[in-house]
Write a protein that binds this DNA or RNA. Sequence first.
DNA 1: CTGAAAGCGCTAACAA
DNA 2: TTGTTAGCGCTTTCAG
Lengths: 344, 344
Amino acid sequence: MALPRSGDNRRPLTLRDVSEACGVSEMTVSRVLRNREDVSPATREKVIAAARSLGYVPNKIAGGLASQQVNLVAVIVPSLSNMVFPDVLSGVSKALEDSGLQPVFGVTNYSPEKEEEVLYEMLSWRPSGVIIAGLEHTEAARAMLENAGIPIVEIMDSDGEPIDSVVGISHRSAGRQMAEAIVAAGYRKIGFLGTKMADDHRARKRFEGLTEGLAEHGIEIADTEFYSGGSALKKGRELTEAILTRSPDLDFLYYSNDMIGAGGLLYCLDKGYDIPGKLGLAGFNGTDFLDGLPMQLATIDACRHEIGEKAASIIAGKGFEDGVIGGHRIELTPRLEAGDTIRR
Amino acid sequence: MALPRSGDNRRPLTLRDVSEACGVSEMTVSRVLRNREDVSPATREKVIAAARSLGYVPNKIAGGLASQQVNLVAVIVPSLSNMVFPDVLSGVSKALEDSGLQPVFGVTNYSPEKEEEVLYEMLSWRPSGVIIAGLEHTEAARAMLENAGIPIVEIMDSDGEPIDSVVGISHRSAGRQMAEAIVAAGYRKIGFLGTKMADDHRARKRFEGLTEGLAEHGIEIADTEFYSGGSALKKGRELTEAILTRSPDLDFLYYSNDMIGAGGLLYCLDKGYDIPGKLGLAGFNGTDFLDGLPMQLATIDACRHEIGEKAASIIAGKGFEDGVIGGHRIELTPRLEAGDTIRR
DNA sequence: CTGAAAGCGCTAACAA
DNA sequence: TTGTTAGCGCTTTCAG
């Protein structure tokens, strides 16, 4: 006996059902439903009425197979739970609006293997393009991207060799930029707090940039504190307490993201540290929730929304009618926002 | 002349290419690639080697059409930019792991029309199930869901009649629960701060529950402050300043989400309000970033991750081997976390 | 402007 | 265990 089941087993409607309902050939129904111009208004109306009243939903599987075209853009990011990627995705969505393309999101949790899986899965739907975070991929993933035969845009990071196009910022130079600001403000004993960076290449590059930038002034990072897991205010507090307990003489703390930076800021304010006088602080990302904190945390804007928008525009072929599609290299310039937590 | 273009026009590989490369029939290649058991180890290895070395990626469009099965689950949520839906999505991803199903995310920006579009688009890919936030949909969207012939799970909200299955909490009773706690703690002049609720039905239901709960004790909401746009700390500060300036005699502020609540809390601490003595505060969602604030904001946990997980389990048919698939109703019980911002 | 025929790349069903 | 055949539902192409 058949189980009672949600969605009874009515066969989904096909073009043929609509065709029969309105006495127009399948072919013409198909034309109407794809908004093609070469159909008489009378026929068009008949078809639309029939399709609507039946509740017909086209089958893109069949359509995609027949036309060898799929209006999907695969967007692959490491995480949704911090404040950075949702912004990127909204930029993508915005740029794809009215392009006829549809973004499809996949999440890798900063795991190269998971990225490879997600990519494989997505490519098997033959999307029109891929937007993928970062320049570091497994060998297999690189091969898939290279052979996909569609535009690929690597985003967020411009420090390295892209497969096809790239839209991002240099995290290395963001790190150096922060180093300059820190040194210029007179801080000398610098601590770094952030994720364990095995697979967060952008955080690593910022760290390296910071290290290099400081080295040019003869300064070495005085202490570091690493953690794993998502970004959270509480983590920021804990890390800050740990590093300041161990190295009370630090006069600057650089955080690998704004959220833990904000946690650190709240901790320091609680404890009565003199900020930015005796202790300076900075984060990274330029997330707008910093606006509501008691002091404005210094940060570098990662241009998240704009990156998403530009990347999607490349796929959609908008704004690049210069005869070349693909192979674009767009490096955005991150702005340092000194806020209230660096001495002036 | 052809433009230089990313992804040159190599024809994507087909099963046939793999078949020819290893001298095994297309059908058997297909079996191997779908991990079917009925292939000899020797053949299997030959096929896998050939597929790998060619870099073959199966075409799910064709596969889906032939098998009338698509391993996609459509997940439709209003927003990614607040802290609630990413948690839901991670619950979904977790539950779908190893089920062979793949979540696909769509975002509606709290617009019923956009929801309808996204749904139409997703249904046209003939997914195996739909997880969609809320019980309120356009008439057309309802019709599509009812006729899709696949399991539908409406999530987040249990106040209303689901189309098929539902997993959520009662926002109305969450509002009442908060009203009880507020009254029990002795607060009497209550202010409400939140989004304009035209399309945020869950925020509306919480507001209604709060109103009803207070009414039972002869209390009316003393003042309200509405805004539009995303949740942000800064918004919380501004709203709080506005409402307390206009109604300085308020002794409790109820926020429609934790983020603006946190902004309000920081504002009140800045201004030296006696919390929770003279002024109580509460938010909603139970987002874990509250942990790092100077005081723990009272909140009600919306069970986000669990909702995503249970909803996905229904689609995957896990944990429901009682002879019925579909038509499940799971109402979770939100926990009130009084934190430090309600008097004891 | 409309229709008929062929086939997209794969898999169900059956045959060997 | 492997191969053959016949579509899946749509769109391309070409003919009217």
